[in-house]
């Protein structure tokens, strides 16, 4: 089974995503007036992992996404993005206490996403995203879409337009580079033949791929995909799987995705977080989550409530809120089944 290497190592007290997390969501709460959309949610996204966020409709997945990418300001909680291999907890605490939005020391950087504006999260913290309802620049060509994504490095190279306006060579060089990068991504997503067509003219699946390519053109450390397989046919979703795995392998980009297509989720995810009613009900690898009675109950409903209750009691101290201890015991329970 996928992710066997992880479940087969019972000696590991912690999962790899907890040891080397690129993104940590800590006690995230999001309220819209009286509606509690996300309640005290904590999870980690491992570096280089493909992490899936799943849950029934209205579970709060997109809200979590919007909090991570800065489109919503969370009511409570901390969202930490780490750059570099080893980021000490001290650096994170120092940055948090100092009230700064982010702190970069040498090769490692800490970004407190809940304090940052959406465009800075993309620009500085290197978190890119796609949207559930595709948001391409429909009237611009495929190439232009990818060039817009490289706005910030190009702005810098053009000395904030002034240097580029008078034709300094630095900008010309950067421009050629940016086109090369766009061409590379158009090749990767199979849109090179349609480079000069408006994005709005592309078929649906190609638009989804273009949106991913556009997000990748920002050079992200974490790529957040909101239902990338929605509306794709089976062939297209298997292509998507290949593309995501390619991105993870070749570019070392960690991926966080929301997905309803369990085929995609189970096949490519290293780590799955399950939400229901704004709370985390399960967190583990594919095999663990699939067999978690709470996940089954949330997805399929249960005939007998007590059945679940009994199953939960079997899980010893199955407290969903406390991640550390709960996870470990859950893991054992999952393994036993």
């Amino acid at each position: 089974m996928i992710g066997d290497n992880k479940t087969a190592a019972p000696a590991a007290l912690q999962h790899s995503w907890d040891q080397d997390a690129v993104l940590s969501v800590e006690h995230l709460t999001m309220r819209f007036g009286g509606l509690l959309a996300v309640n005290d949610l904590s999870f980690n996204v491992g570096r280089g992992d493909i992490t899936a966020l799943i849950g029934p409709n209205g579970a709060g997945k997109t809200t979590v996404f919007n909090c991570v990418t800065g489109f919503y300001k969370p009511t409570e909680g901390r969202i930490v993005m780490r750059h570099g291999d080893k980021v000490s907890d001290k650096l994170i605490e120092d940055a948090t206490d100092s009230g700064e939005q982010f702190r970069v020391e040498g090769s490692s950087g800490v970004f407190l996403l809940e304090r940052m504006q959406d465009f800075q999260i993309s620009h500085r913290a290197k978190v890119a995203r796609t949207f559930q309802n595709i948001r391409l620049f429909a009237g611009m060509t495929v190439l232009e879409n990818l060039l817009v994504a490289q706005h910030n490095p190009l702005m810098l190279a053009s000395n904030y337009t002034l240097g580029g306006l008078i034709g300094l060579p630095g900008y010309r060089h950067a421009r050629e580079k940016s086109i090369e990068k766009s061409v590379y991504w158009m090749e990767q997503v199979g849109l090179i033949d349609r480079a000069d067509d408006p994005a709005g003219d592309l078929p649906y699946g190609a638009q989804r791929r273009l949106e991913i390519a556009r997000a990748m053109c920002t050079g992200p450390h974490l790529l957040c995909l909101d239902e990338p397989a929605a509306g794709l046919n089976p062939r297209e979703s298997s292509e998507l799987n290949t593309l995501l795995q390619f991105i993870r392998k070749e570019h070392g980009t960690s991926i966080l995705l929301i997905e309803h297509d369990m085929g995609v989720v189970m096949e490519i995810s290293d780590h799955i977080v399950v939400l229901d009613y704004g709370e985390k009900i399960s967190d583990g690898d594919a095999a663990f989550v699939r067999n978690d009675p709470r996940v089954i109950a949330a997805y399929l409903g249960v005939e007998d409530e007590e059945e679940v209750e009994a199953a939960l009691e079997d899980d010893a101290n199955g407290d969903a809120a406390s991640t550390g201890a709960g996870l470990k015991s859950n893991d054992e329970a999952g393994g036993a089944k």
Binding site: F71, F119, F131, A138, G139, M140, E144, H151, S158, A215
Partner: peptide, 22 residues
Amino acid sequence: MPIGRAWEALREDEIACRSLGI
């Protein structure tokens, strides 16, 4: 230039612009 393309992108979709760091 990047600024002009950003203007046009803004006309097309402001939210997408922000998600791309503009």
